[in-house]
């Protein structure tokens, strides 16, 4: 009881701070300096229609490389922690309904297609590599639900993941030599704003991120699904 009271008092203190922030907040009427720079320069400099994508992939491209690395580390540690000391004994198959099996077979190609569409069009529409990768991983999750005994080749997943990562870094390095710096997208022609083949290397980089993120999420899901029932 006393613990709950302490927790309540703590939350009341934090809540009062939040309330001060909330009532003192006035939304900006104009864009701040950073946002203004991005709004004014993205179209002319990078040729990307989606400004958020331009920030994520090019302006702050190094951060995104770091982010993908963090995700890779998380996926590896999940694999490491879960693989440790598990004995492989044959699992009893869980009966899966006809509806789920047929539905998965019917929906999986469409989910994968949607994922690819989302990351290929990342520089034009709301979406991109992370979202597309998550959609692809949701397709893998559906496959695992429909067939819990399905074994994914970890070799294939890590091959896709590593190849995408190596090409991603190579494109970044090509930017150092052919354009203005690491991960500069202007190594390819910018094209016209709004075309699929525009914005230089952004669609290429975001597709690679999509594959990488999809492979990382799939590896987390496969590790979680392969662990023994307790």
């Amino acid at each position: 009881m006393i613990k709950r009271l302490i927790a309540l008092a703590l939350l009341a203190a934090v809540g009062s701070v939040f309330a001060t922030l909330l009532f003192g907040y006035t939304p900006d009427a104009v864009l701040n300096l950073t946002a203004r720079y991005y709004a004014e320069h993205t179209a002319a400099d990078l040729g990307a229609a989606n400004i958020v994508t331009a920030i994520v992939v090019t302006y702050r491209g190094l951060d995104t490389l770091g982010e993908v690395t963090v995700l890779f580390l998380a996926a590896s540690i999940v694999g490491l922690v879960l693989a440790q000391g598990t004995q492989k004994k044959p699992r009893t198959p869980v009966p899966v309904g006809e509806l789920l099996t047929t539905g998965a077979r019917f929906l999986l190609p469409m989910i994968l297609l949607l994922g690819v569409y989302v990351f290929v069009n990342g520089h034009l529409t709301p979406g991109g590599g992370f979202q597309g990768g998550a959609i692809i991983a949701s397709g893998i999750l559906l496959l695992l639900l429909a067939d819990p005994l399905k074994h994914f080749s970890h070799g294939l997943i890590s091959a896709i993941e590593s190849v995408a990562g190596v090409i991603y870094v190579s494109i970044g390095l090509a930017g150092v030599f052919l354009a203005g710096g690491f991960l500069d997208n202007r190594i390819l022609p910018l094209g016209t704003l709004g075309d699929l083949a525009s914005a230089g290397a952004i669609p290429l980089i975001y597709s690679l991120i999509g594959l990488k993120v999809g492979a990382e999420f799939a590896s987390i899901l496969a590790s979680l699904s392969e662990t023994e029932e307790l």
Binding site: Y38, V52, P126, L193
Partner: peptide
């Protein structure tokens, strides 16, 4: 913050919200 036929690149500063928090 997506430039298309509805939001021209020229008046993007007056038309779009802050893209940085979204990134």
């Amino acid at each position: 913050p997506i430039l298309d036929s509805a939001v021209a690149a020229a008046d993007a500063v007056q038309r779009i919200i802050d893209p940085v928090p979204q990134a």
